[in-house]
Amino acid sequence: MYSRAYKLAISLPPLAWVTLFLLAPYALMFMHSFWTVQDNQIVHTWSLNNYAKLVASPVYVQVLLRSMWIAARVTLFALLLGYPLAYFLSFHAGPRKELLYQLVIVPLWVSYLVRGYAWKTILGGDGVLNGLLQFLHITQHPVEFLLYSPFAVVLTLTHIYTPFTFLPIYASLEHIPRNLVEASQDLGASPRATFWRVILPLSVPGLLAGATFAFVLTLGDFLAPILVGGPGGTMISNIVQTLFGAAYQWPLGSAIAVCILVLVLGLLFATERVERKWTFS
């Protein structure tokens, strides 16, 4: 029913903008990953040298694996915190549901930086937690391992991404028709059996979406490691950032970025397929 001119008018501007300012930059990054640096100049000769360097150097692989390990832990903790919370809100919160829901939303909107900074002041050598420990005479000297460690990164990122994980889980739980739960009970399933056999399977799409959020966002994070990570908490994106900043190693940095991109897109593709399999309507 829409005329050709109308269709062109709504399609062309976003198409052009996105092509110029999104597709072209991504493509440029992709191209850079095949170029090389000679005498601090980027040379447009195509090669796989950057990727070869990545595979050959144990440092990059090691940091990538560590980043994935951190991301996996953050995902696990975010699910362990987010799922029961979502389940409680959706099925047991009663009339306070709406208020509690908004209480989860609020931290989501609080600036990333503010939350990261808050943990820094809590975990530091002269931070709130150490102050408390000494105040209670549990320790005599500041506990230094709290800040600037992988632990601090995992804790901070779990705190930041739990609400992100919560949202899709909560949405999928809310979409479960309540009469299914009643039917399950009617057929003799205990509450526990109902949860494992009805509620959990039907919330798999939300669970996966939440897990993907936490994993992908953690994997690409470079701010929390700087803020609370210290040398042991360095992640793969920090290497990319360093290569782009001080060292002026765009091609190598691009190659790592492309690796992250492929990893992320592969993960999205995989979860999408699984999600579709677990979506029944």
Partner: peptide, 23 residues
């Protein structure tokens, strides 16, 4: 097109940021 438009929402900011920096 749809996927491309939505990509910055799910991609780590560093990738979008660096691509644009290069651009």
């Amino acid at each position: 097109f749809r996927r491309l438009v939505l990509l910055p929402l799910i991609l780590p900011g560093i990738i979008t940021g660096l691509s644009l920096l290069m651009f």
